[in-house]
């Protein structure tokens, strides 16, 4: 990753994350197929809702015939971490027009957010509309197409896990968190390691008590507060 912030560089930088999208996207398509969702429903979920893990939850709640309102509420709760990520990411685009901010915001994901945070470590804290749009658009298209291919081929691939693609997502986050750790000079390695250990501990205990998605939020928020206190102590 270098300091260039063009549209073309955005495409190049987002490519490693594409494997994660393909792996999980195919998996979602296959799950949707076995849950008897039509291709249009899969397309609607991927291209209009565009919510990654929440799409799995919507699918299982549809299958269980849960009421519409609780499906929408669950989607909101699962995606509420977007509020945190968007608030963080938006800091880099305050100088851009409102229209451009809305365009960028509408396609933020865990992956493109994490990628952008890695990128700004190499560009003295700057991001550009062109770079972020390229990352957002590639991620959006690859996700949508992968889920449709998965839904279409759903009946043919019996065991997609044997190729190890289900691990792509976890591997991607391992890579992103490691690169963040070594390149965020503002916080430093020691403080970040301490915060990471704290987040892992909170997450580990929290998933015994609350849902994984709530645990994600609680661990993230607790980790931020812990980090703030630790920074004051130094």
């Amino acid at each position: 990753m270098d300091s260039s912030l063009t549209f073309r560089t955005g495409i190049k930088d987002v490519l490693p994350t594409v494997f994660g999208y393909i792996g999980v996207g195919l998996a979602f398509g296959i799950v949707a197929h076995t849950s008897h969702l039509g291709l249009w429903m899969v397309a609607g979920l991927s291209f209009i809702v565009y919510a990654g893990s929440a799409q799995f939850i919507i699918t299982s709640m549809l299958l269980a015939q849960d009421p519409i309102t609780s499906i929408i509420l669950s989607t909101f709760l699962v995606n509420s971490r977007m509020i945190l990520m968007s608030t963080s990411l938006a800091q880099y685009f305050r100088h851009e027009s409102l229209t451009r901010n809305i365009l960028l915001g509408s396609l933020v994901t865990d992956e493109t957010f994490a990628l952008a945070m890695n990128k700004q470590n190499h560009t003295a804290g700057k991001l550009s509309f062109a770079w972020q749009s390229a990352a957002n658009l590639i991620a959006y298209l690859v996700w949508g197409v992968a889920t449709l291919v998965g839904a279409y081929l759903g009946g043919l691939i019996k065991n997609p896990d044997q190729f190890g693609f289900d691990f792509a997502l976890t591997a991607m986050f391992i890579g992103l968190v490691y690169l963040q750790l070594i390149s965020d000079r503002k916080l430093g390695v020691r403080l970040q390691l301490l915060v990471m250990a704290f987040v892992a501990l909170i997450y580990y205990f929290a998933i015994g008590l609350i849902s994984e998605n709530m645990a994600l939020l609680v661990a993230t928020a607790a980790g931020c507060l812990f980090g703030m206190e630790m920074k004051k102590c130094r």
């Binding site: 992103l176 916080l187 661990a219 928020a221």
Partner: peptide, 9 residues
């Protein structure tokens, strides 16, 4: 702290 915490989680 959001980037490092959310990626860790």
């Amino acid at each position: 702290f959001v980037p490092i915490t959310i990626m860790t989680a």
